[in-house]
Design a binder for these strands. Sequence first.
DNA 1: TCCCCGATTAACT
DNA 2: GTTAATCGGGGAG
Length: 194
Amino acid sequence: MERNYNIEPEIFLEPAPLLAPKLLGLELGTSLGGETSGLIVEVEAYTQDDPASHAFRGISQRNKAMFLPGGHLYVYLIYGIHHCVNIVAGPEGQGEAVLIRALEPVKGIELMKKRRATQNERLLTRGPGNLCQALGIDRKLQGVPILGEGETWLRAGIRPTADTVQFSSRIGISVAKERQWRFFIKENPFVSRA
DNA sequence: TCCCCGATTAACT
DNA sequence: GTTAATCGGGGAG
């Protein structure tokens, strides 16, 4: 574990599969009627040439935030119910992003319990839909920058050592299962699946 | 315009 | 293990 390191802004211009593991251990938070945050413990990378990616068919009204420069947010609605949040990767015009799949809660646990309607801390930010609900993230945050002093922010957290990072196929997709672009912290209880 | 189905979740049997 | 919930993107006609 390493604390108080700096986030290098250039990492967001790297391809999503390179950026994704570097996001593990960073603290993602919002200040929306109260501060809530958590350490990123599970992510997945999606690229433009990737059949599982929303960017695969090119730019559209829905996915245009994916084509912003790295370091912005791409938020989408899935199954008509749940929001999912991505951190955009790569240069402007390149449709790549990293889906945030799980956080380890840090700040605003009481507010997150209220938003999630549960007292079970383990369920607050486990899974991409759940963590958006806990942090109050929806499409009003479409395309906002993640670095800087906005109401959505990313800060240095606790950087994992290489031996605690695992990777696997991505969850819930029906194509491109051979791409092992899911990265997560070994044995972390907030990761959505073992 | 119609139709299918998804980067999910929780509540079932 | 299975299934309903509920919206909107995108391909077919």
